[in-house]
Design a binder for these strands. Structure first.
Lengths: 225, 225
DNA sequence: TCAAAAGTGTTAATAGTACACCCATGA
DNA sequence: TCATGGGTGTACTATTAACACTTTTGA
């Protein structure tokens, strides 16, 4: 086409996914024990190569679906990792994305086929290449974004208790907060609404179930917790 | 090497730079009036292709130096732009970076050779491809980062008055703030230190010149303005 | 009846915002 | 002497943080 492009080199372009899940008050990542070279036997993020006719964002979605069977998952771009020797096999430029999934809803068979396991975020194994760095950056970004965007709900079931929500925010921020202060903030948030339903599984007394009203949020696009 | 890679397509990978400058109380971007196809005659960001043996970050630095003659410039990655048809000539995956430079210190001849001009940030021309989107994302990111990282000083001379500093923060945040409140915040910041020097160019009375103590900042890595 | 989680208000401390006048100087 | 930008303090408001006991109910 234009001569402008043709003297320049071309590169393999990949995507890698930092897949967050939440259960039992703890954040986890879905990691692969690699079945192939390079890095066979090592732990890595789920990744894949960008294809012709596919945007980078779409490649990330495809790769996530290949592993989890899920569509319409919340994903955000973390950044480009473009060091020359980051992959010892060949030069590959990779874009990291984080994904937030409901840990109860993925396709267990696909995950098993890929040799993938949930690992608690504070007990992660050593990861190959620069995947460690991707995870650090993804955690940081997710934490920042969760303060001003209602992304945490992607990690919870549609109906959740306030204790679950508080545990989630504590896990994301790596702190603990006072229960009364937390619930006061929730009460001030017009998009977190109480349902008449009660979850009896976590206590004898039972806890009210809440949901996030996404429709109303989309009208205002303001969120704070 | 590994067969793993070889079936996958390869892509041109580029970088584009959103170059911020500050003078007369206004933020500007350094933009090119393109001398070549595709997009000849249109306005664009300064860009270039990643080369073999060069990291993506290094490509961004090189491209910035090609235009401005400056080294050691503050740059941050804004994100990957990977839509299939974003460049009508060929498929190019581009990573945007923003750069903050002291508007008094670039190489004017190089800039002229590249057909580049400073354009006020609120009077930008229409940009080609998805460069508009890159600029929006860069402005947003820069604004966010300037609240918690001492990046604004890259846009100022080493010695600056408090009025200049206030004008800068107002330009970044798109607001105006009370002078006394602003100066109170500055006084609480241990890294912004008064020098005995006075700038008589902006007023009859003269204004004290301040500097940012980068050494002390690096020891604490905490910043707030 | 008691263990275990749910639920509930008030007060103090801190941070942020609003506001107006005098000062120093060169032309 | 006066026009211009530099410099300063206080009172009010809003937000955030600290803190402890009662309720419900199934085992």
């Amino acid at each position: 086409m234009f001569e402008y492009y043709s003297h320049h080199p071309r590169f393999y372009v990949a995507v890698d996914c930092i897949i967050f899940g939440f259960s039992q008050g703890e954040l986890s990542l879905l990691l692969l024990k690699r079945k192939f070279e390079p890095g066979q036997g090592e732990w890595s993020l789920m990744g894949g190569f960008v294809q012709e006719g596919e945007s980078v964002d779409d490649a990330a979605k495809r790769v996530l679906t290949e592993l989890t069977g899920l569509n319409d998952v919340y994903m955000e771009q973390v950044g480009v990792f473009g060091e020359v020797d980051r992959d010892p096999g060949e030069r590959v430029i990779s874009t990291a994305y984080y994904a937030l999934i409901n840990i109860n809803e993925y396709d267990r068979q696909l995950v098993e086929e890929h040799n993938a396991y949930w690992m608690k975020i504070d007990e992660l194994p050593t990861l190959l290449f620069d995947h460690q760095e991707m995870v650090v950056k993804a955690r940081q970004l997710m934490k920042t974004q969760s303060a001003t965007m209602p992304i945490g709900f992607n990690l919870l079931p549609e109906l959740f208790t306030l204790t679950q929500l508080q545990n989630l925010y504590e896990a994301i921020n790596g702190n603990t907060v006072d229960k009364r202060n937390f619930r006061k903030r929730v009460a001030e948030n017009p998009f977190i609404v109480k349902t008449p339903l009660v979850d009896k599984s976590g206590s004898r007394r039972g806890a009210s179930l809440y949901k996030f009203n996404e429709e109303d949020y989309k009208k205002s696009l303001k969120f704070k917790l």
